[in-house]
Every structure is written in structure tokens, then in C-alpha cells.
Write a protein that binds this DNA or RNA. Structure first.
Lengths: 335, 335
DNA sequence: ATCATGAACTTAAACGATTTCGTAACCGAT
DNA sequence: ATCGGTTACGAAATCGTTTAAGTTCATGAT
């Protein structure tokens, strides 16, 4: 391994000078610096992140917290896209990404301790139980963090605009003439709360009443739960004309039940999803859904976090709401 | 931050003794060690991975190479499952996971240099272009590596048993009476080669001839390519009775075309997929497919890599072939 | 009484970089 | 000739840990 000392010896300068040349400091002669860099390149030098981190306290490494309750955070396109894009952006800005977890090996480290252990400069938190004391401890620590789809006081967060998303969907189906709208919602999370609130409010604003039995608990990314909920809706005397699913994937479960019941989409029942995953546009009929801009969210999370890391003093936490867009498929019939 | 020195001072011993107590070395008294550990716990000490790595040369960190050509390595359930399970296993064994890439920041590092820069103890390579010189450089370096679904000489690899998988699928549809079997295959990769070879061989063994026009190039995870290929098959005078898709997701494209052509599955056309992703069992009819054991593969990759890292001398590269299992859905008709 | 042995510690030198401070040399201005 | 100000560089400390190589002291063998 080529070190600063090797280059220093070859160039007949001190290690300090080599360091300065490599890092482009000002107090080093133009030609000397160039000569040192050239030699370094010839010798196949690249810095050692570990040594650099130890001395400088900065690791150029951001941690990612990605542990959801269902043990499948990565499997969902929404989250894998966020991860992928956060990764690209972080890399572009010169940062690496390491997964943060707890109980690494046999040590009983919590998230915060783990992040410190690896000297992460910051942490992106997504797809976790935000009520978890270990998460709260991390968020309240001195380590810069960015949360996705959850807002903590005095911390930067990137949230998908669930209020606007739900509003647009409701207004869209309203414009298509629907008045009896059912909503199968996901498990109780802050995202769900926001969507539910927006659903009720928009309906109220439009002057449509929603029967209590039209709103049923399902689960995110769980077609089986969606299937059960759909069946309940079909058993009602006064059926809805349109069903909102918690997400695109759940919709698959509903689709099966509808087909089984001999109902065609959208002629006998209209439906909408949420997420805008790839699959939703591959199915026939194409699903009408609200596409969240996961790619932008991931990029923005990395960008904001790194800004915070690099300008800690003049940093003010901000809450960034990311709009998505309604994708008009063919699953909502004009009544 | 609590350091070894702080504990040493408090306990009136040297830093070396603290280090030995923490790491459970033998040349330290039983009670002293216990006392030191107790104090360390009280003081909220946890080690600094950076300093440890710098001195010991071992980072307890494994790199993951996950850059596929289509820029969506993570989005596929197969790969995200591998990553997820590799991550869990690595964590269980006391290792962290960092993404390896090239061109981090503005430095022109290649994969090998990046891995050295972060002092990764080893690298898991999945979902990349294995012909890429940068990948080959990494694989031929002194860094332990494990590759997934690709075999390098003198390197450990974990490969899904594509030969057996394809053989079982062919035998299954044969047993159902099918003789005219079409195969829409993915782009040219070593996986494709192995599946194709197995497809042809099994057919030959069973005494069925395959018309050249029954074998068409599609793409992995691309329903559109599958749709086009399916249409071509339907245009043939002598249509196949069963279509093999490159993977479960591609099948969606074929499904649409078949439905559009008024053909029902499996009554008018039988189909099989490959992968066994969650979605395939949610669709109706359930897809007959071959489920790859991605979870086991990821775990095994981590396990093997870490074995190699920890016992470098007595390490012999091994090629581990992971069998999957045929999932019998309802998309193949008994003729 | 002497010496080898081993257990239990300590000392001190790393690991590879960064960074503060110091200084030598040179410039132009007085 | 002297002074202040740059510029370009070097010396040395430092980050937190590990580890080879002592040192001390009690123990048991001779």
C-alpha cells in the first residue's frame, strides 16, 4: 500500500506537504503540488479513508437506517428506489453508504452507538418504527439526520405529499362522477393518518358523505388483507362505486376478488391505488394511482443531509414536502 | 467520547490492559478484566471502529457491489432479498455493509481502489457486468470476494441452480403433456446460457424437438419485451402450447397479450415463469414458476465471505449451487 | 539460595493521515 | 539596512486503538 510517507520520500518533501498537495490546500507551491500529485498518481496512491477519518473526525460516510417492522423494507419498490437514488446522490457528493443496525455481532449497540462506532457523518432514516426509543435517541443526538415520511421537531425531513396526493385522487374520481367512495387504508402510521385526514377533508369539501363502513383497515403491501377488505365492501347492500387501495401492490388482492365476483374493472367497479410502482402500469387495465417521486426523495434526502453535515453552523432544519403526480390509468369509469 | 485512555485513567491501569480486557485477551487477570469491563460499561464506552481498523488492518466491514446495467439492481425482489439476507447474516457475524461503487465524488477510483480506500475485509459481488475490467481487477485482487450467479476461477461463488431449475420446469410441463414448448429468454448472460443449455438438453433427453422460432430473445424484468415476443409466438402457424418466460415479472407482459388475444390461461395457453417472486403467487391464476432461494443465497454469500476473511490460510474457493423449488401454480394445463 | 517459568501488567511504537505552529527565504517599502 | 508581509515548506503532535516486547513479581523446582 502506498502511503503519504512513500510519496514524501520519493519527492523529497515532508508528509505534510504531500497531504497539502493531495487535498489542494493553498499553502503549497503550484509546481511542487503538481509534481507531488503526478508522482502520487504514478505510484498508484489513493488515500486511506480510515486514517483520514481517525484524524479528521469526518468519515465521508453516511449511515442508512432501513429496518421496517415487516422485515422487508428493501423489497418494496418505493423504498428500494429511495435507497438507490440516495446512494447515487451521496456517491456523487463523495460519500459512501453503510447500513446502520443494532446488535451488530454480539455487542448490544443501539442505532446511535452503531453510528458513532462507524463515525457516520450523518444518518438517513427511512422505513422504521419512528416511535422506537432507539430511533428517537438517534434523532435527538448530535448526529445530523434526515427522516423520510416522518417529521421530528428540529430535524430535517422529506415527506411525500400525502395530503395533496389523496386530495388529487379524491377530486379525480369525484370529477368522474363518483360519490360513493370506499377507502381501504394501511396500518396506523403517520402516513396513513395524513392520507386519511386528507381523504375525509376532501370529501367533506366536495360535499360527499362517507359511510363509516366504506373505510376499512387493510395493510400496506398486503394483497391478502386487501382481498378480505374488498370482500367486505362487496357484501354491503349499498356498495361503493370506487375503491381506494392502500397501495398499488395491495390492489392485486382486490383485483382478484373483483374478478372472482364476476365484476369487471372499471365497468362494474372503479379502483385507484397509491405509489405508482412499475407493476401498476404493466397490468391491464392500467391502474389509476398517485405516483410518489421516490427518486427525488432519496436524492433530496442525501443532498440535505450532506448539506447539513458540511455546513452545520448555518443549518436550519427544514421539512421538505415532495409532490407526486396523478397517473391516469383506466381503472376509474366515468359515471 | 469515552476512549480507552479515559477508562485506563479511571481504573488506574494502562491503555493496553483496557484493550485486552475489552477484547478478551488471555494475558490479563480475571478480576481486573471484569472490573475494567464493568467500568467501561458504566462510562458508556464503545470502541471506535476507525481507530481499530487503522491499527489492525481489519475493518469488520464488507463491501457490496450492486450495480447492474439497468440501474435497478435493488428494485428486483430477487436482488433485494439477497441483499437483505446478506446484510442480516453479516450483521449477525459482526460485520457491517457498505456499498462499493466507482467514481465516488470526483476521485476516479475503481471498485478495487474503493474497497481498499474503505479497507473492506471482503466484497460480495452481485448484479453487475462480470466482464467489466474493473470487476475482474477486483476479483483478481488480494481482497476476498464472493460472486453471485457467476463463477470465477479460484473464487467462491454462490449460484442458483439454473440447470436443475430449468430441467424441472421442462419435465413438469412435459409430464402435463406439452410437447410444443416455447422459451422467451433473457439477455445474454451466464445465467441465460445455463438455462438455455439446460432447456435444450432436457428437451432433447425427453425426445422433444424445439423449433428455432420457439426460442425468442426477451429481456429480464421487462414485460414489454415479453409482450412483443409473445405476440410473435402467437403469429406462428404452429403455435406452442406452453410458453416459458424469462422471469415472473416479464410474464405480466405476456399475460396482457394473451388476454388481449382472447386466450385464457391455462386453457388456451400454458405458461411458466422463473423466480418465484411474491407477486407471482398473488396473481390469478397463480403462476407456475421455479422459486430461487434468494434468502439462502444471500446468507450463504455473507457466511462464506466471512469464513474466507477469518480463515484466509486454509481457505479453498468453493462453488455453491443453491437449489430452488418448483412452485406449482395453475398456469399449466394438463393436455 | 538460585534460577527458570509464567501470569499480569506496562511501555512504547506503530497504523496513515491531518493540522497547528514555526521558520526560512524572499519581496518591496521605508 | 531594517521592517513587515507573504509564500512555501517542515516538525511534531494527534486521532483511538492494537500489539510486540519488555518488566515485575510470585511460584516452584533444583
Amino acid at each position: 500500500m502506498v502511503t503519504l510517507a512513500d510519496i514524501a520520500k520519493r519527492c523529497n518533501v515532508s508528509r505534510a506537504s504531500v497531504s497539502k498537495a493531495i487535498n489542494g490546500h493553498s499553502d503549497i507551491g503550484k509546481e511542487t503540488a503538481e509534481f507531488i500529485r503526478k508522482t502520487a498518481r504514478e505510484m498508484g496512491y489513493y488515500p486511506n479513508a480510515t486514517a483520514r477519518t481517525l484524524k479528521s473526525g469526518r468519515s465521508q460516510n453516511v449511515g442508512v437506517l432501513f429496518v421496517d417492522k415487516t422485515q422487508s423494507g428493501l423489497a418494496h419498490e418505493y423504498f428500494s428506489k429511495i435507497l438507490e437514488s440516495a446512494k447515487s446522490m451521496a456517491e456523487k457528493l463523495g460519500y459512501d453508504i453503510t447500513f446502520i443496525s443494532r446488535d451488530i455481532g454480539t455487542t448490544g449497540m443501539d442505532f446511535y452507538e452503531h453510528a458513532k462506532y462507524r463515525q457516520c457523518d450523518g444518518v438517513i432514516i427511512a422505513s422504521v418504527d419512528f416511535e422506537d426509543p432507539a430511533v428517537i435517541k438517534l434523532v435527538n443526538s448530535e448526529i445530523p439526520t434526515v427522516t423520510l415520511d416522518y417529521v421530528f421537531n428540529n430535524r430535517t425531513s422529506i415527506v411525500s405529499d400525502n395530503v395533496k396526493g389523496m386530495e388529487e385522487l379524491v377530486k379525480y374520481v369525484y370529477s368522474k362522477g363518483h360519490r360513493k367512495i370506499a377507502y381501504i387504508h394501511g396500518e396506523e402510521t403517520s402516513v396513513t393518518q395524513r392520507r386519511m385526514a386528507s381523504f375525509y377533508k376532501t370529501c367533506a369539501d366536495l360535499g360527499i358523505g362517507i359511510k363509516p363502513e366504506y373505510v376499512i383497515r387493510g395493510d400496506y403491501h398486503d394483497p391478502k388483507a386487501a382481498a378480505i377488505a374488498t370482500r367486505k365492501l362487496l357484501e354491503l347492500n349499498d356498495r361503493p362505486t370506487c375503491i381506494f387501495y392502500p397501495d398499488d401492490f395491495s390492489y392485486i388482492g382486490g383485483m382478484n376478488i373483483l374478478e372472482q365476483a364476476g365484476l369487471s374493472i372499471p365497468d362494474d367497479m372503479s379502483v385507484v391505488g397509491y405509489d405508482g410502482i412499475h407493476l401498476s402500469q404493466m397490468l391491464r387495465p392500467k391502474l389509476t394511482t398517485y405516483q410518489q417521486d421516490a427518486t427525488f426523495m432519496g436524492e433530496e434526502a442525501a443532498r440535505q443531509l450532506i448539506e447539513n453535515i458540511e455546513h452545520p453552523t448555518l443549518w436550519l432544519p427544514r421539512q421538505i414536502t415532495v409532490p407526486g403526480k396523478l397517473i391516469e390509468g383506466s381503472t376509474v369509469k366515468q359515471l
